[in-house]
Design a binder for these strands. Structure first.
Length: 271
DNA sequence: CTTTACGCCTGACGGC
DNA sequence: TGCCGTCAGGCGTAAA
């Protein structure tokens, strides 16, 4: 399941093979993604040369002079470069065919992903304009989290998964960062000290960077743009480890539901 | 304004 | 063996 490290891994994997290449045509086999793939994509993208591949939160921005392809991998999506004649597999919903006999292929079994097209600054797109700071940038820090959390009764885990607060912290890494910081996931956000938010912001950066170094976390169906699995799963401390002993205190890791998501934590190590 | 719940979707898995 | 219910979850959206 692509989270920020997986999306960044994908960005790095495809960027060098896209930039400077011209789009020959766009093939849409299944337009029914999170939103329908717009007609404008197939009409306006061909003939253009990719100038940059950037990321904002979990959105990828594939830039050309004429406009920008915005891609989201949803729960199960992948973007990989294939030979243009590579055999199709189930759920290969779209190909961006390039002028060097390769194609960028979107594969997404659950179809929670998206391919969109904009002629404007993609950062001004409705889906991106309200995103909070990037978690790995300097403006995301303890002071910022502390300020944003004052007067909020929401559980701290929900706070850090709110894309308006910080962009791109998903369910896996939220649980992991809270464990590292020693903070209970259900604690009211407004009742956490500035000092502890400093710990939390550092933990978020640390866990995301560690996952990035491992090429992301492969649980079920995530594979990097080179098709390889990520290796961060072996380093997960609480996520997916319900009833297994906490790596610190040996008490069983607990599983609760917050919102509609699973949260894993240690009752003793997280307060 | 904040908070909560839902739905989209397929594949894996467990129970019978 | 097959069928069916449940779960997984990013995240926009609607509702409370």
């Amino acid at each position: 399941m692509p989270e920020l490290p997986e999306v960044e891994t994908t960005r790095r994997g495809i960027a060098t093979r896209l930039v400077g290449k011209k789009v020959v045509r766009v093939i849409v086999r299944e337009p029914r993604l999170r939103w329908p793939i717009p007609q404008e994509l197939a009409l306006q993208l061909p003939g253009n040369i990719f100038s940059a591949v950037e990321r904002r939160a979990k959105y990828l921005m594939l830039k050309t002079p004429a406009g920008c392809l915005i891609a989201h991998l949803g729960m199960s999506g992948s973007l990989r470069i294939f030979p243009a004649t590579a055999p199709l597999t189930k759920h290969d919903h779209a190909d961006i065919v390039l002028d060097n006999n390769t194609c960028l292929r979107l594969h997404d079994p659950r179809r929670f992903g998206a391919l969109l097209w904009t002629n404007k600054n993609p950062l001004q797109h409705p889906l991106l304009i309200n995103l909070g700071p990037e978690p790995l940038e300097a403006d995301f820090n303890g002071a910022y989290l502390y300020r944003q959390s004052r007067g909020r009764s929401v559980a701290v885990k929900n706070l850090i998964m709110d894309s308006r607060i910080v962009a791109g912290v998903g369910n896996i890494y939220a649980s992991e960062a809270l464990f590292t910081a020693g903070i209970h996931p259900a604690r009211a956000a407004g009742r956490i000290s500035r000092q502890r938010y400093e710990l939390l912001s550092q933990a978020i950066k640390q866990v995301l960077n560690a996952a990035l170094e491992q090429g992301g976390t492969t649980l079920r169906d995530y594979y990097a743009s080179d098709g390889k699995a990520g290796y961060f799963k072996q380093q997960l401390k609480v996520y997916g480890r319900a009833e297994q002993p906490c790596i610190t205190c040996k008490l069983p890791v607990r599983l609760i539901r917050q919102g509609q998501r699973s949260s894993y934590y240690c009752k003793y190590c997280q307060r």
